[in-house]
Design a binder for these strands. Structure first.
Lengths: 107, 107
DNA sequence: CAAGATACCTTGCAAGACAAAGTACTTTGC
DNA sequence: GCAAAGTACTTTGTCTTGCAAGGTATCTTG
C-alpha cells in the first residue's frame, strides 16, 4: 500500500533534487532510497516523462567506474513546475493533517 | 496531477472520519470535499474495497429527504488499519518535507 | 575470464482516481 | 400532476504511475 502514497510526490522529489544540481538516474535512485523504497523501473520512465514534457534536459558523461552516465538538469519550466508542486504538496499535506487531527468542522 | 497525491490518503481519510462515527457515502463525499476535490466515482468503489477487506460494515437507513442511505461503520480491524495508515502517513510526509527542505545529507 | 558493481532501458501488470452515465427517491414550483 | 432539482447509490471505461522482472553494456577485481 505504501506505494500508493508516493504517487505524485516522486516527481516533486526528483525536480527538487535537480534544482540543487545535476544528477544521473542511478544516483537519483540512491538518493531517494534514503527516504523511501524506489527502483530503477520507477525512475527511468519518470525521467523520460519529465524530459518529454520539457521539465528537464539530459546529457551523457563518460565514467571511469562503469558505463556512461546520463545526467539530468532542470529547465526553467522545470523550476516553475517544481514550485507549483511544492505548493500543492504543502497545502495538500496540511489538509490531510487537519483532517486526521480532527480540526475539521464536523459534528 | 493533484489527483495522484490523493492515492493512499483517501482511504486514511475515510477510515479516520468513520472512527468518529457512522457516515453514509454521499455524506463522506461532502465532508472530504471540504479539503480536496472528490467525486462519488471515487468514494463508492473505495467503500466497496474497504467492506470487502473487512475494515468497515454497512447498513441501510430509510430517509425522508431522498433515497435510502447506506451507512458505514468502522470495525475493530478497520481501527487497526487506520492507526497503521496514520503512522505511515506521518513518517512518509515527514520524509518528503525533509527532502524538499533540504535536510538530507547530500552534497 | 568470471563475478560483481555500476548504469541504463523496456515490458507487463496492478492500483486507484475520476468522468460519465444510469437508476431511483423526494420535494418544490407551475 | 408533472417537470426540475436535489439527494443518494452504482457501474463502466480510461488514464496515470509505481514496480517487479528481465535485458544490455561497461568497468574493476580476483
Amino acid at each position: 500500500m505504501q506505494s500508493q502514497l508516493k504517487r505524485g510526490t516522486l516527481e516533486l522529489c526528483v525536480l527538487t533534487i535537480l534544482c540543487r544540481g545535476d544528477r544521473y538516474g542511478y544516483e537519483l535512485v540512491n538518493i531517494i532510497s534514503n527516504c523511501m523504497h524506489i527502483t530503477e523501473g520507477t525512475i527511468y520512465p519518470l525521467m523520460k516523462r519529465l524530459k518529454d514534457s520539457g521539465s528537464i534536459d539530459s546529457y551523457i558523461v563518460e565514467s571511469q567506474e562503469g558505463p556512461p552516465r546520463k545526467y539530468y538538469s532542470i529547465t526553467d519550466d522545470g523550476r516553475t513546475i517544481q514550485q507549483e508542486q511544492e505548493n500543492e504538496w504543502r497545502s495538500f499535506s496540511e489538509s490531510i493533517n487537519k483532517l486526521i487531527n480532527g480540526e475539521e468542522g464536523m459534528s
